[in-house]
Write a protein that binds this DNA or RNA. Structure first.
Lengths: 218, 218
DNA sequence: TTTATTTGTGAGTGAGTACTCACTTTTATT
DNA sequence: AATAAAAGTGAGTACTCACTCACAAATAAA
């Protein structure tokens, strides 16, 4: 099921490989579901305990505060949302050869990569973007990850393809970045958050989106 | 000040011209500020009363429930976000003549129009998009307004420019709509919500965004 | 001015709220 | 098997929540 996938992701993602107890896993599962459904502030710890089938005290045995529980859910998502963007792919694919197919393929790779990530983690991503505005801790976590791991690589990537002529030099680098990101994220949000029940032709939409980006920036 | 602008907007927007009492205006003002800052669920009616300088009972004299207060804040925003999109402009500008400048100008008009709307109502728009996921009443309000007032006009608009050759016929109409909307909304959100403190060159960004859309869909 | 209506009040209500703690049960270590 | 540490419990804590209501003040209608 979907729920187990989420937990799997979460457990794998936790920096120290401390395996959670079954009850702790149940708590996370319940909290994720309720935070996504009602929002963090509108969800009570007693409700989470009830849904998880544990005593309320058990929650506070593992998480000092309710906010601690939220952070422990959200922070691996932030990390994993940023990292696989470039980690292994970027270095070999971009710098070794510079062809047109390469640009198109990498663009496609990024879209598919993030598409699948959100597809597998819709609930967690929803919670993250819902709560980020109200919790400075999450904001900082996000900013750090983005500024360190995504932004610098992306800038280099854009500059490379501006040099090769795939991307027009009329666009400032930051504007290119903004346009690509809003187009990709906009698609993914429309697909999974805004209109998840629309009869999507995913492959077609992705191809058209890539075409739109490529032509728009040429 | 900004606050008064918001209220002015709100008061003008309320369907019946019942003018609110000064205390009621204070309540709305306080509620808007706190909802935007902490979120609806995390804001208590006692806090609102305190900030507005009224007794807590006064809130419930004017609004049956706390949710009633939220709806009365958010619903005029939904209406006003959709309406001026096309109301007067659309008919004359699009159907009377079909030139290339026309397409570009209308695109520009839309971007500037929505840009200024969000610029003037950032706080209210923030509340709307923050709370829409948790309140079916707002969702329905939004869906109705969009489906009735924006969507049909937009479809016709896209079809017109696909016929004139400004927009490629390779893109399905709904895909065109999605790409334009995510690009425009993505820019506005980045500008006013995500990175409001970045040193923006608004006119340049808008022009580049229009160029991106035009070339992307050609 | 008298009467009726609207607007404002704030103490009071019961139902939660996040969180604690003394305690029991389970698991790991010697 | 004895001891220690970790995990789980649920009644209890002080406090806050949205909302009510009997009453007072201000405004409008007569």
């Amino acid at each position: 099921m979907n729920e187990q996938d989420l937990l799997q992701e979460l457990m794998k993602a936790s920096e120290e490989d401390k395996d959670l107890t079954p009850k702790q896993a149940k708590i996370l599962q319940a909290a994720i579901e309720m935070f996504a459904e009602k929002g963090y502030a509108a969800t009570s710890t007693s409700e989470i305990a009830k849904k998880a089938g544990v005593a309320e005290g058990t929650i506070f045995r593992h998480y000092k505060t309710k906010k601690d529980l939220l952070i422990s859910i959200v922070s691996p998502v932030v990390t994993r949302f940023a990292i696989p963007f470039f980690a292994d792919r970027f270095v070999k694919e971009v710098f070794e050869k510079e062809t047109n197919e390469n640009y198109d393929d990498l663009l496609r790779e990024i879209v598919y990569n993030r598409f699948e990530f959100v597809q597998k983690n819709t609930t967690l991503v929803k919670i993250l973007f819902q709560e980020i505005s109200f919790h400075p801790e999450i904001q900082q976590l996000f900013a750090e990850n983005f500024l360190e791991k995504v932004y610098p690589h992306f800038i280099k990537w854009v500059e490379t393809y501006q040099r090769s002529g795939d991307i027009s030099k009329d666009f400032p680098v930051n504007t290119v970045l903004r346009l690509i990101m809003t187009t990709v994220i906009g698609f993914i949000i429309t697909r999974f958050v805004f209109l998840p029940h629309y009869d999507w032709n995913d492959e077609m939409e992705i191809e058209k989106t890539i075409e739109y980006i490529r032509k728009g920036l040429s």
